[in-house]
């Protein structure tokens, strides 16, 4: 009692944390080996490719990482679907009308038209934008990546032009995702004044109650309304790494 966790709320289970960092590692491997191929004419790319054992091995690494990405994405979708269908999780990630009004409200707040920012549930519209952006992007990258990996097979069902189009999509969208992650996600989890120097929730799995109040007030209210006390210093939420999504039981 009285530990740091007393002021915190469990936000992510170990499974989700491991999933996140695996995804991050695979993503980085893909970005490094992929962008080096997209910008093959740069000296840095050449050095990197030669350092990794030549273009053939870089392509092999990229494809193996791609297979891992397919696996991680598939299990994420399956876990999400099962979790929701078996009523273990609430469908928190679904985009609702409220997300759009929240975005407008936040803009109004930034310009000083309202006193407070939009009050969000478990996932804010920004987080939903990122999640769905990455998920749809990943699916697009996998589809186009497979076309590029097996072009002859793809061309036996589709017109040949699909292959250069897939290449254009693959490389352009990769750049887009990379820029979004490196600008938006890195800002939100490192440089944003609310979390600086680092948002540790994806490392420890806990988020401070203060931040819950500021960033996820609706979720906090729901948790407290459900009778599970998260008040500081009292009733520490049960430590239950086996359960998904949050430390609390939603059923």
């Amino acid at each position: 009692m009285g530990t740091a966790k007393s002021f915190s709320v469990r936000r992510f289970s170990y499974r989700r944390i491991i999933e996140h960092w695996l995804y991050a590692a695979v993503f980085m491997a893909l970005v490094i080996t992929g962008l080096a191929q997209k910008f093959y004419f740069l000296d840095a790319s050449k050095r990197l490719i030669m350092g990794l054992g030549g273009i053939d091995s870089v392509r092999l690494i990229h494809r193996l990482a791609g297979v891992l990405l397919i696996y991680l994405t598939a299990q994420n979708i399956l876990a999400g679907l099962c979790g929701v269908m078996l009523k273990k999780w609430k469908p928190n990630m679904i985009i609702r009308k409220k997300d759009f009004t929240d975005a407008v409200e936040d803009l109004r707040y930034y310009f000083g038209a309202t006193e407070a920012p939009a009050s969000c549930g478990r996932y804010s519209y920004k987080q939903k934008f990122e999640y769905w952006g990455i998920l749809t992007g990943a699916v697009l990258m996998m589809a186009t990546g497979l076309v590029l990996w097996f072009p002859a097979f793809a061309a036996s069902y589709l017109p040949g032009e699909v292959i250069p189009a897939a290449k254009a999509l693959h490389s352009n969208h990769a750049l887009l995702i990379f820029l979004i992650i490196s600008v938006w996600h890195i800002y939100n989890s490192i440089f944003s004044p609310e979390v600086f120097p680092l948002d540790t929730s994806m490392i420890t799995g806990y988020i401070s109650r203060k931040r819950m109040v500021e960033e996820h007030p609706l979720e906090l209210a729901e948790m407290e309304g459900a009778g599970e006390s998260v008040h500081a210093g009292k009733n520490v939420p049960p430590f239950n790494p086996g359960s998904d999504e949050t430390g609390m039981k939603t059923s």
């Binding site: 002859a152 061309a155 290449k167």
Partner: peptide, 20 residues
């Protein structure tokens, strides 16, 4: 179909490889 994957030394344009 497969050789169409190669754009025959033309850069993509609306007339040639509009999709790309």
């Amino acid at each position: 179909n497969f050789p169409d994957a190669w754009l025959s030394h033309y850069g993509p344009s609306l007339r040639n490889a509009p999709l790309v």
